[in-house]
Amino acid sequence: MSLSPSAKKICTFAVEHFAEFGYDASSLTVIAEQAGMRKASLYAHFANKDGLFNEVMDIALREERLAASNAFAAESGVPLPGGEYLNALHTRYASSPDFRFLLRTVYAPPLALREDVITKYRLFEADLRSLFIAALPRSLDPHNATTLVDAYLGIVDSLQVELIYNSPENYEARHRALWEILQRYPIS
């Protein structure tokens, strides 16, 4: 969906607001004020809170798909793909309201939108799975490829949880340990 400049502006403020307060504690009045308009003007662009939230979710997922694609493209030819994507998680969490919103939403979805959020995130995970598998050596046994991709996605999940609920030191320790273990898996 192509958004008008005003709708884009609303989404910019909404993602930060939803990332900080979550769906239930977010206020369309506050989002509209931050965007420099009245709540009634916000409704000219989005039918309701769910509509705005879903649009912000779609934007955040597009951004995450782009980040993943760029990370995997940057490491062509490495024996074990996915390290660049993992290495960037912490930085993106600190700097990207879209990524903070995405993680908060995925790990604590609003009850009314839970199924939609989970479905959308599973599609992203399928894309991440495809990127990882496409970057593996073609000679790798299919069973080993499946094991590696499942372990990799488990690492992604674990690190995302660490970003939300733990300290940077715990995140770094978990990141190092899990990546080291994954690298020990036989690729050839």
Rank of each mutant, 00 (worst) to 15 (best):
residue 137 P to Y: 11
residue 127 D to W: 02
residue 70 N to E: 15
residue 79 P to H: 13
residue 64 E to P: 11
residue 37 M to S: 00
residue 133 I to N: 01
residue 169 E to Y: 02
residue 161 V to H: 04
residue 65 R to Y: 04
residue 45 H to S: 14
residue 22 G to W: 05
residue 29 T to S: 09
residue 124 F to Y: 01
residue 99 F to P: 02
residue 16 E to A: 02
residue 98 D to Y: 09
residue 159 L to D: 05
residue 167 S to M: 06
residue 74 A to F: 08
residue 93 Y to S: 07
residue 140 L to Q: 15
residue 96 S to A: 04
residue 142 P to S: 13
residue 161 V to D: 00
residue 121 Y to A: 00
residue 153 L to R: 07
residue 114 R to F: 10
residue 126 A to V: 03
residue 41 S to L: 10
residue 172 E to V: 13
residue 73 A to H: 06
residue 145 A to T: 02
residue 8 K to F: 05
residue 164 I to G: 04
residue 89 L to N: 01
residue 31 I to E: 00
residue 48 N to E: 08
residue 121 Y to W: 15
residue 13 F to T: 04
residue 137 P to H: 13
residue 133 I to D: 00
residue 125 E to H: 06
residue 186 P to E: 09
residue 128 L to A: 15
residue 91 T to G: 10
residue 112 A to W: 07
residue 68 A to I: 05
residue 168 P to L: 12
residue 157 D to A: 15
residue 19 A to V: 05
residue 108 A to T: 01
residue 25 A to P: 02
residue 4 S to F: 07
residue 84 E to N: 05
residue 20 E to C: 06
residue 58 D to T: 03
residue 91 T to H: 14
residue 76 S to R: 09
residue 75 E to D: 11
residue 141 D to K: 01
residue 37 M to N: 08
residue 151 A to L: 06
residue 160 Q to W: 04
residue 151 A to C: 13
residue 67 A to W: 11
residue 101 F to W: 01
residue 96 S to H: 00
residue 43 Y to H: 15
residue 170 N to Y: 08
residue 54 N to G: 04
residue 181 I to Y: 06
residue 160 Q to D: 10
residue 22 G to H: 12
residue 55 E to L: 08
residue 46 F to P: 02
residue 103 L to W: 06
residue 3 L to D: 06
residue 174 R to A: 11
residue 107 Y to K: 09
residue 157 D to R: 07
residue 61 L to F: 03
residue 17 H to F: 00
residue 97 P to G: 09
residue 29 T to K: 06
residue 143 H to Q: 10
residue 41 S to R: 12
residue 102 L to K: 08
residue 160 Q to P: 12
residue 138 R to S: 12
residue 180 E to T: 07
residue 127 D to S: 10
residue 93 Y to G: 03
residue 54 N to A: 14
residue 125 E to M: 13
residue 68 A to D: 05
residue 175 H to M: 11
residue 159 L to P: 01
residue 135 A to C: 10
residue 57 M to Q: 01
residue 12 T to A: 10
residue 134 A to I: 00
residue 66 L to H: 14
residue 40 A to C: 13
residue 178 L to I: 09
residue 42 L to G: 00
residue 39 K to Q: 06
residue 98 D to M: 07
residue 170 N to E: 03
residue 79 P to L: 05
residue 186 P to R: 15
